[in-house]
Amino acid sequence: SGKSEQELQDLAAYFDNQEMPLSQANPDLIEQGAALYRGGNMASGVPACAGCHSPQGKGNEPGGYPRLSGQNAEYISKQLNAYRGGERATGSNAAIMMDVAAKLTDAEIEAVANYVSGLH
Rank of each mutant, 00 (worst) to 15 (best):
G2Y: 13
G2P: 12
K3P: 04
S4I: 10
S4L: 10
E5T: 13
Q6T: 13
Q6W: 07
Q6G: 06
E7R: 11
E7P: 10
L8P: 01
L8F: 09
L11I: 11
L11R: 08
A12V: 10
A12R: 15
A13M: 07
Y14R: 10
Y14C: 02
Y14I: 01
F15K: 13
N17H: 12
Q18W: 04
Q18A: 10
M20C: 08
P21V: 13
P21S: 12
Q24H: 06
A25P: 01
A25Q: 15
N26C: 02
N26I: 06
N26G: 05
P27G: 03
L29C: 08
E31H: 07
E31A: 15
Q32C: 00
Q32R: 13
Q32G: 03
A34D: 05
A35L: 09
A35Q: 15
A35P: 01
L36V: 09
Y37N: 03
Y37A: 02
R38N: 13
R38A: 11
R38Y: 06
R38E: 09
G39K: 09
G39P: 05
G39H: 07
N41M: 08
M42T: 10
A43M: 14
A43K: 14
A43R: 14
S44T: 15
S44F: 07
A48T: 05
C49D: 04
A50N: 00
A50V: 11
A50T: 01
C52E: 01
C52W: 04
C52H: 03
H53V: 00
P55D: 15
Q56A: 15
K58D: 14
N60S: 11
P62W: 00
G64F: 06
G64D: 03
Y65T: 01
Y65R: 07
Y65M: 13
P66F: 00
R67G: 10
R67H: 07
L68G: 07
S69T: 11
S69D: 09
Q71W: 08
N72F: 11
A73D: 09
E74G: 14
E74V: 14
Y75M: 02
S77Q: 12
Q79D: 05
N81L: 11
Y83C: 03
Y83A: 03
R84L: 01
R84M: 02
G85N: 15
G85L: 07
R88G: 00
R88Y: 02
R88T: 05
R88F: 00
A89H: 12
G91R: 08
S92N: 09
N93V: 14
A94L: 10
A94R: 11
A95M: 13
I96E: 09
M97H: 08
M98E: 08
M98C: 05
D99V: 10
V100L: 03
A101N: 08
A101R: 08
A102D: 14
K103G: 04
K103D: 02
K103V: 02
L104T: 05
L104E: 01
T105Y: 03
T105R: 00
D106M: 03
A107F: 06
E110M: 05
V112I: 03
V112G: 03
A113K: 03
A113P: 03
N114A: 04
V116C: 00
V116Q: 00
S117L: 02
S117Q: 04
G118L: 00
L119K: 06
L119H: 03
